[in-house]
Simulated assay, not measured.
Amino acid sequence: MSYGKHTLDDLRGPARELRSRIPEVYAGYSATHKAALAPGELDVATKELIALAIAVSSQCDGCIASHARGAARAGATEQQVAEALGVAILMNGGPSTVYGPRAMEAFLELAGPAQPQEPASS
């Protein structure tokens, strides 16, 4: 199963339907989302990595897909994602060893072709 595009596609229709019934709730959530992820002392990529780790701890496939996409769009690297998922495993244990790989798979799928890695410093 794909935890990136497939999950986002599966949720699109039902989310649109629910949003049409409670637009004020969704508008409020959207404003909170934009404010929380806006650049500040932490950049957007870091905030998306935090959200991705929390999504793994929450075992939320839709959240994983959304924040994997957000991390990819914000320029997070594969290694940064892996390290953030390592923190999720530290804090949440066994369940994160199941949802962490799902998050990594989603990120890799949504990020597209492999990203160049920084050369190791000597």
Rank of each mutant, 00 (worst) to 15 (best):
Q79A: 08
Y29R: 13
L11D: 09
A15W: 09
S122W: 06
Y99S: 00
A71Y: 09
G4E: 02
P23R: 14
R102W: 02
P95D: 05
A38N: 10
Q80Y: 07
E17S: 06
P101Y: 11
A15D: 14
M104K: 11
T32Y: 15
A72D: 14
L8T: 09
S66E: 07
S58R: 05
V81P: 04
E48S: 04
D43P: 11
A36V: 09
M104Q: 12
E48R: 03
S30L: 12
I50W: 08
K5N: 11
A55M: 02
E17P: 04
G4F: 01
D61L: 00
I54D: 01
Y26E: 12
S57Y: 03
A36P: 10
H6N: 12
R19V: 09
A72S: 12
I89V: 13
A51N: 03
V98W: 00
H6G: 13
Q59S: 07
I54Q: 02
A55P: 04
L18C: 08
G75R: 08
A53G: 14
V25Y: 14
P95H: 04
H67W: 00
R16A: 15
E83K: 05
A72K: 05
T46N: 11
K5L: 07
R16D: 13
A82W: 15
A72N: 11
C60G: 03
S2M: 07
D43E: 11
V25A: 15
Q59A: 04
S20C: 09
S2F: 08
A35H: 01
G75L: 07
G93N: 00
A35C: 02
L37D: 14
R21I: 13
A74I: 13
G4L: 01
R69H: 10
G28R: 12
Y3A: 00
A84L: 11
S121P: 11
L8V: 07
L90G: 08
L110Q: 04
P39C: 04
I54G: 01
V25R: 14
A71I: 03
M91Y: 06
L42Y: 12
I64L: 01
G40M: 15
G100H: 08
L49A: 00
Q80S: 09
Q115F: 08
P14H: 06
A38F: 05
L18A: 10
A76Q: 06
